[in-house]
Amino acid sequence: MFYGDFCALDGVSLAINVGEFVSIIGPNGAGKSTLINVLTGALRPSAGTVLFKERDISGIGPVRLARLGMARSFQLVQIFPDLTVLETLQAAVVSRLNRGSRLFGSLSRDREVQEGALAIADLFGLAEKAHTPSKHLPQGDKKLLDVASAFALYPEIILLDEPTSGVSTRDKHAIMEILVSASRQLGIKSIIQVEHDMDIVFGYSDRIIALHQGKVLADGTPDEIMADEGVVDTVVGRKALAPGGGA
């Protein structure tokens, strides 16, 4: 994957299996965001393919990808400022049920949409703030809403671009706990996250992929990554693995 002459990803080949929680780690400029954008069909790779359910999804764009069963959240929190929490989740449910072209149906009388949105709000602990405009939420809740709306699509696989960035350390684990439990309840098969916080990475992942200068430096279980001195020195950092450490 090239930006002009700069090669952002080089010879990256990986397969995500059903049931895996995969974390992608790497220093700034390692190619994590590019990888997420390639995986989510936002960028077309200069060479190679991205297969999802045996279908090439290179550059197919976010709308078709969401319909295929892959959802994402963003590094910089993305919300609908003037929509309430419930309206945001309703929009996701409307999209999942493919009812976005219903011009004359009543949204408030659509029980499936209403109940679907409320269920997600409950699951993410946002029910009490259901009628709060999204722009008035605290930062942690905004992040949660961004992720919750992606979950409301009931995707098979979800890509989370730094799901806890910009959130206080205290809230990070709470968000991750909610996220993992919600994915189990909703039957989301795989999670891929880009994350800098090694506490979160090693605490929740089944598998870790370390990127460095656009290449896969290591790919293994948290124990295998921790045992790889090269990766620890280059990507993880010794301080992060020390007791009580964290990036």
Binding site: V63, D82, A91, A92, V94, S95, L103, L107, A150, L153
Partner: peptide, 21 residues
């Protein structure tokens, strides 16, 4: 309507709306 809600998502944040399909 559900369509009306989709319009408001497009107005507020097109990139997020697309990510929601």
């Amino acid at each position: 309507s559900p369509f009306g809600l989709c319009l408001r998502t497009v107005r507020d944040n097109p990139a997020k709306a697309e990510a929601l399909g």
